[in-house]
Design a protein around this nucleic acid. Structure first.
Lengths: 138, 138
DNA sequence: GTTCTTGCAAAATATTTGCAAGACG
DNA sequence: CGTCTTGCAAATATTTTGCAAGAAC
């Protein structure tokens, strides 16, 4: 993604586009798969991990990225697909390969609608399917 | 649960019923909600956390307990509801209260059947719904 | 100059392993 | 005795915060 597109994306989400934040957004775009903090830290050698973390936290608050949990190996982050800056409504299942530890985005699939007992109120959900991916299939 | 029931449960899963393991199984039974390692460590003052961890790991390998991930606060463990000692086939959604950080078991609900792309092979899945529980509801 | 951002260090949290002593058979 | 189990310590890994220096406005 071009720098100017990153800037626009940040601004659309009311985030001041600092140099570091632009780099983080680019790194997220550049990789097809959701990234962990450690992976981003490795790919972006120029920025300290605490700042990558702070950028991601800020992005989450502004619904520019969302976090994916349940991979056994830390939280992963991906850009929100929807352009709704108010809600994180583009949740979808993910697939975690237990061999290569990659996380794939199953964004063609709908999240199931689970009926909750009286009094429970849902805000978000994470569906993580684990197994082996085509590359690691025996 | 009585001690002899715990022993039987362990033996059914081909696990040697040592004193510590019985205590861990009892602690898991005693609490309605899936427990984290830290919670178990707190409840079972007499056993070191490394051993609780090793017991849980062993139990998982023998499909006596299963792990629930995606709660933001560590892995939680619960006894498998099914008595199938070969497969961990009693997966069901869970609910994580973001206020009190309790994890509830939605075992009345079915896990959705997500169609995977060619070449992907599922082994297990975790569905974690987050929000607020009845106690913490405003 | 006040506020925001950054880098570095380090605290906090969670998970896992090494190893020697002890229990078990 | 040989194997399994246990407790303690400590290594790893991950996430998060404190703080002072620097940049931005």
């Amino acid at each position: 993604m071009e720098e100017k597109d990153c800037v626009r994306l940040l601004e659309e989400h009311d985030i001041k586009p600092t140099a570091n934040r632009i780099v983080v957004v680019r790194a997220l775009c550049a990789s097809m798969l959701p990234q962990s903090l450690a992976e981003l830290e490795h790919k972006i050698a120029t920025i300290d991990k605490s700042n990558i973390f702070r950028a991601l936290t800020l992005f989450r608050e502004h619904h520019l990225v969302h976090a994916i949990e349940g991979s056994s190996d830390g939280t992963r982050y991906e850009l929100c697909h929807s352009h709704d800056k108010e809600h994180d409504d583009d949740q979808h299942p993910h697939f975690y390969c237990e061999v290569c530890q990659q996380t794939y985005c199953l964004d063609y699939a709908e999240m199931p609608d689970i009926q909750l007992p009286e009094g429970f109120k849902a805000r978000s959900s994470n569906l993580m399917i684990k197994g082996t991916c085509p590359h690691c299939k025996k």
